[in-house]
Each structure stands twice: as structure tokens, then as C-alpha cells.
Simulated assay, not measured.
Amino acid sequence: MAVICEEDGTSLQVATQHLRDLLLRTGSLFQFIGELKSPPHQELFLQARVGRNVDGIDVKLYNRALELRRQFEAKFKRDM
């Protein structure tokens, strides 16, 4: 298990046992794709299927691109 922390102080446990060849380093930026799991009487965690190091990414630009994509997808769904 790894714990990822957001800039706002929130955190999420990530199960990493299915990841291969990914060096997890404290202080680095990572992106994970997987399923959110919520076992009875346990905390929510992410079962990671894919993970990658994204050190060097422009986080503000990435967040802006994500926001624009969500706006586009919402408009696309309305127009259908």
C-alpha cells in the first residue's frame, strides 16, 4: 500500500501490488488509474492497475486541460 497526498491535505491509500517496474519515491508526482474500492468497515482505497511517474508535469496546465475536457464532454452529452 502507498498513501498519496493531495496539495490540499487530503489523502488516499493506493494498493500497488499489481504495478510492475514503478519506482515509488516520496515527494514525486504519480498518476494512477484503477478502481475505487470500499470494503465493509474499511476506508476507501484505490486498487491501482496502472501507475506512472509524472515528475516535471505542469500541474496547473494539466488541471486546466482536464477542466476543458470535462466542459467539452458535458456539452457533447447535452447536444446529443
Rank of each mutant, 00 (worst) to 15 (best):
E6P: 00
Q47M: 09
F32L: 12
F45W: 09
A2Q: 09
H18L: 08
L66K: 11
R78K: 15
Q42W: 04
A48W: 02
V50Q: 15
H18R: 11
P39K: 08
V14S: 06
Q47L: 11
V3L: 11
R69H: 08
A74C: 06
L61D: 08
R69E: 07
E35W: 09
F45H: 10
P40K: 09
F72I: 14
L46K: 04
L61F: 08
I33W: 14
L46H: 01
E7T: 15
L24W: 06
S28M: 11
R25E: 13
F76E: 14
R20M: 01
Q17E: 09
R49P: 00
L68H: 03
L22W: 05
L66D: 03
I57W: 06
R49S: 13
S38P: 00
D21C: 00
L36V: 11
L66W: 02
Q71S: 08
L22P: 02
V59Q: 13
V14Y: 10
R69S: 06
Q13R: 04
P39S: 02
D79P: 01
R20V: 04
L24N: 02
L61G: 07
Q17Y: 09
H41V: 05
R52I: 05
D55R: 06
S28Y: 15
N53C: 15
M1G: 08
S11Y: 07
P39I: 05
R25L: 10
F32W: 11
Q42F: 06
D58F: 03
E7F: 15
I33H: 15
R70K: 13
Q47V: 00
L19H: 01
E73P: 00
M1S: 07
Q13C: 03
Q42M: 11
Q42K: 10
I4S: 07
E35I: 04
F76I: 06
F32N: 05
L29N: 13
L12E: 04
V50K: 15
R20K: 06
A74H: 12
G51V: 00
R49C: 10
Q71E: 10
N63E: 06
G56A: 08
D8Y: 13
A74Q: 11
V14N: 09
L23H: 13
D79L: 14
L66G: 03
L36I: 12
K77S: 12
G27H: 10
F45N: 00
D21P: 00
I33V: 15
L36A: 11
F32T: 03
M1T: 03
Q31C: 15
T26N: 10
A15T: 01
R70H: 04
L68T: 01
M80G: 11
L12Y: 10
M80S: 12
T26Y: 10
L22T: 05
F45Q: 01
N63Q: 10
E43W: 12
G34I: 03
L44T: 14
E35N: 12
D55H: 05
I4C: 04
E6N: 07
R69Q: 11
S11Q: 14
K60P: 06
L23Y: 10
V50H: 15
